[in-house]
Nucleic acid binder design. Structure first.
Lengths: 212, 212
DNA sequence: GTCTATATAAGGATAGAC
DNA sequence: GTCTATCCTTATATAGAC
């Protein structure tokens, strides 16, 4: 309600986000974007300069807030539930899922994120890791601290698995899973719980030399 | 060595696979494909009819064999290690990672797979689920049978998480992780072990009502 | 800041000679 | 089966009027 969605720039960002989610970056033309945003084709270059820069701005708009919320939740988890793995994971997961409930295209954005993850486009990956890599490192440290028995190498793998599970779960979210009977909020809450349980249990797997 | 890689058709498939892995489907032009395959631009339409059909053939070439190996390994696991979750998971995971070691572009293909997973392109998804959906269903059944305490709904989520972790791990595989010191085979074996342990542990997480 | 018009390039696909 | 040449569409980007 606050300025969003009503000026040309934000209309373009919203339309781009939604189309990128559906069709990918290369698969979406600026013509489609400006047509959906109901602005002139020339506006996108006026406001963003190029398609690549538009893509970056789509990320920046959401990731700034998402990163802040994650780090804030991590802070709370550390203070109120020190050493509790599931709270740390929830601090990472819940803000992302909450975003996917947000009106004004949050739903689309989580799928854009998944896409960026899968597309190994170097320029895009570099932009994201440059601007938001510190968030991942913060969580890595917090999670590793909970699991002293897991070797550094195993931990590297496992964090990757968690990231993959989260990313694809978010992408699928609201896509083919939303049953008519369940409302969106409940569905979202459930997804977060399931993922936190699964990830915590996977991360805690005993190393081979400690089994039996 | 057997017919592959030396006729026009297979050269096109190989080049397409490799470029799709790097740039995605929409991001790759037929001109790039034919240029890398060192064949004429008209050849792709002569042999495949359209870009969409070429994409499908890239999948069919690998997935037929991958599916067979997975189902074969599942059969062996069922007979020799009945009810053992980790063997079932290995039957699913190892053939995929073995493929990623294959010369002649297997490395690229696992990344193509990940891309297909992320891109929610309906036509492509439909093709894959139509031709290979039965493999996933077979594994779902086998895995569920090992975990009677997990509700049907939770199981649905968890299988999604496993698929996400596997897909993403495979995609990253050989991309940014291969350290100079470790050879490819060992790296691959390790990845499979780590993923099997992680997935088994995640799938076995106790439902909330059975905790403590 | 927003439009029309257009420059310029690249895309998929095909026709027709060899 | 493979080539050249070309059609037609779509793309990004910009110039310049309003």
């Amino acid at each position: 309600m606050a300025g969003t969605q009503f000026n040309t720039k934000d209309r373009i960002l919203g339309a781009a986000e939604s189309l990128f989610a559906q069709q990918g970056f290369a698969g979406t033309s600026l013509r489609e974007v400006t047509s959906r945003a109901d602005v002139n084709i020339a506006a996108v270059n006026y406001h963003f300069g190029s398609k690549e820069n538009l893509i970056n701005e789509v990320f920046r708009r959401r990731l700034d807030e998402l990163s802040e919320r994650r780090l804030g939740a991590l802070q709370v988890a550390r203070e109120q539930h020190p050493g509790d793995l599931e709270w740390i994971l929830a601090a990472f997961i819940e803000p992302a899922l909450a975003l996917s409930l947000d009106r004004h295209g949050g739903t689309a954005f989580v799928r854009v994120l998944a896409r960026a993850y899968a597309e190994k486009d170097e320029r895009l990956r570099q932009f994201v890791s440059e601007h938001y890599g510190h968030v991942m490192r913060e969580f890595s440290k917090a999670i590793s601290a909970c699991l002293p028995d897991v070797s550094r190498e195993s931990m590297g793998w496992r964090l990757d698995f968690v990231a993959g599970a989260l990313t694809y779960a978010m992408a699928d979210f609201g896509h083919n899973k939303r049953m008519a009977a369940v409302n969106e909020q409940a569905h979202c809450k459930r997804a977060a719980q399931e993922l936190v349980r699964f990830a915590a249990s996977g991360l805690q797997a005993k190393p081979d030399h400690l089994r039996n």
